[in-house]
Design a binder for these strands. Structure first.
Lengths: 156, 156
DNA sequence: TCGCGTGGGTTGGAAAAACAAACCCTCGCC
DNA sequence: GGCGAGGGTTTGTTTTTCCAACCCACGCGA
């Protein structure tokens, strides 16, 4: 996924250049769940083996995963998330919450996450400064680079 | 991007089936910023026009965008986010924050977002129940459907 | 010792997507 | 009457994806 052409310098585009290819985020999901082996990933994600191999190389190169042998003779490898990879988990959680809300009946959630506070996790993106939930209407963009257009009201 | 084969019922996969194709999230970014016209999108995203046209159709069909004429004679259209689309913006913001942190020197952020509280937005994913920041080590997955493997420690 | 199964991939060829450039149509304006 | 903007579609080429088959090292059981 080329960042090479995005005319807008943007960390969203940069992030997608790393994790935006098909299956990459599902790999992260699996690894965060603790499934670290090639076959488990193939089975749980449903990706073709060659594509998965490509994605894994990419994610390792990008520093989101590590590959290490969990046995020699025969050599077998496992993939684990680095801190950068783990830091994506909250993003995945909020994406999951969006999917639960907008793509499902909300009562057939295929996975419930428990938070250490004892409650079911309902992820909310908040502003670190004031603690309020982040909503579109409270945001104002300030591009730091030229070549941008930012405009008025954006809702339908 | 097929959800058709993902063997795991999962809202992350479902969400990616809708917005996981190349450029889709960048379209959302632009629309949330207020850039609603085909050309602006082409220029700001850097996508081929035909691909963009395909993405826009998909996003409209999925209910994340609306297409409506902003003038007749000649007919011209604009794309705006629905509530479902706007609800993805916090996810984009946390993805952007991840990119800022892990992909950049953190001091050359290409865009700063201002929150209505007056501070610069630093998005944090929190647990709605307890208000704490969501971290990997505080989460436990509870699959609601069969065919899952979930395992022990997941960090590198 | 022979064959079988498992884990972790690689290879080859066909099908689907992305890409770039050119094209089209409707109009407003000079 | 020609030019340019806006919003796409068409055409042909280049990449990716996909699938199935294959490979290799080993452990095991008969």
């Amino acid at each position: 996924m080329a960042a090479t052409k995005d005319p807008r310098p943007c960390s969203i585009a940069d992030a997608l250049a790393v994790v935006g290819e098909k299956y990459s985020l599902l790999v992260l999901r699996e690894v965060c769940l603790g499934n670290s082996r090639f076959d488990q990933l193939v089975r749980n994600i449903g990706a073709p083996r060659d594509v998965l191999a490509t994605r894994l190389r990419r994610l390792v190169d990008a520093g989101l995963l590590t590959k290490r042998a969990y046995q020699d003779r025969p050599q077998r490898f496992e993939y684990r998330a680095t801190q950068a990879g783990l830091d994506l988990e909250p993003v995945l959680m909020s994406l999951m919450a969006w999917g639960d809300r907008h793509l499902r009946g909300d009562d057939d959630r295929p996975m419930v996450i428990e938070h250490s506070c004892g409650n079911e996790l309902l992820p909310v993106v908040t502003c670190a400064a004031c603690g309020a939930e982040v909503r579109h209407e409270d945001l104002t963009a300030h591009p730091q680079a030229p070549g941008w257009t930012v405009k008025g009201p954006t809702a339908a």
